[in-house]
């Protein structure tokens, strides 16, 4: 009888994909694991309790990251959707679209260094608003380019049709454009949330250490060689995107299949 290798290979692949995440959770539960011990001397929820007791400020960082990323995602998705429409109808839409690529020409750290003077002048240095604005500058062009594929002659015809049927601009948005773009809007929100959530370079320069997002915290723990806290903050870092991914998969992608 011929042996079917497919289930074994698949199991191995799944195991390899899952291993880093399982190991991360394991590390977040461990402490005092020194060479040559094969098992950590402590396994438990000590690190997690620390988080909730706010000793290391991880919970605060988690909520800071959440507020910043949600703000960036909401602002950039909304403005990206509305302004991409204006760009589509603009006679110089090619030039405007090309300009949207500008923030990606430079590395985020270099870009932040270029912006730092203006942020300093406007009093946006070292506070959460400054970080939101800085990340928005990166996320907004992404949203703009993302939505540029939505607008086309057919959508224009829908808009004209609604107008001749007696609909005003607000009704055109709420009854036609938003339902048509619902899937894209959710995906864009997810993507811009992720851009902001994992952003390091801009945040570290504009935040000057005063705004400690979870990503900044992870790097700090890694620099301090505190692997256990590092693993714990990584778990926290991954948790919101996984939740968003779940909702996207359940409510958005399912409709496209």
């Amino acid at each position: 009888m011929r042996l079917n290798w497919k289930p074994f290979v698949l199991s191995l692949v799944v195991l390899l994909i899952l291993f880093p995440f399982v190991y991360l959770v394991f590390l977040s539960l461990a402490s005092e694991w020194r060479f040559p011990d094969v098992w950590p001397s402590y396994i438990g929820f000590k690190n997690w309790v620390t988080v909730f007791n706010s000793e290391a400020g991880l919970l605060k960082s988690f909520f800071s990251s959440l507020v910043i990323s949600l703000s960036v995602a909401v602002f950039s998705t909304t403005s990206g959707f509305l302004i991409s429409k204006a760009v589509f109808y603009h006679p110089k839409k090619r030039v405007l679209t090309l300009l949207a690529y500008f923030p990606y020409i430079l590395a985020p750290v270099v870009f932040a260094a270029c912006l730092s003077f203006f942020f300093l002048k406007m009093g946006l240095f070292g506070n959460m608003t400054g970080v939101v604005v800085a990340q928005f500058i990166i996320a907004f062009p992404y949203a703009l380019l993302f939505f540029s594929s939505f607008w086309n002659e057919k959508v224009k015809s829908y808009e004209d049709l609604v107008a001749t049927l007696g609909g005003n601009k607000w009704q055109t948005y709420t009854k036609v454009l938003l339902p048509l773009a619902k899937g894209l809007i959710l995906i864009c929100f997810f993507q811009t949330f992720l851009i902001s959530w994992f952003e390091y370079g801009l945040t570290s320069i504009i935040g000057i250490g005063k705004v400690q997002t979870l990503t900044i915290k992870v790097f700090l723990f890694i620099k301090e060689a505190n692997y256990f806290y590092g693993a714990l903050s990584c778990c926290l870092l991954i948790f919101p995107p996984v939740v968003l991914l779940y909702f996207n998969k359940r409510y958005v992608f399912k409709k496209f299949v």
């Binding site: 015809s157 004209d160 049927l165 007696g166 609909g167």
Partner: peptide, 14 residues
């Protein structure tokens, strides 16, 4: 157009 009470129908059903 929304105040004209004139409906425009395209070749495409839309």
């Amino acid at each position: 157009p929304e105040k004209r009470s004139i409906v425009y129908l395209y070749q495409e059903d839309l």
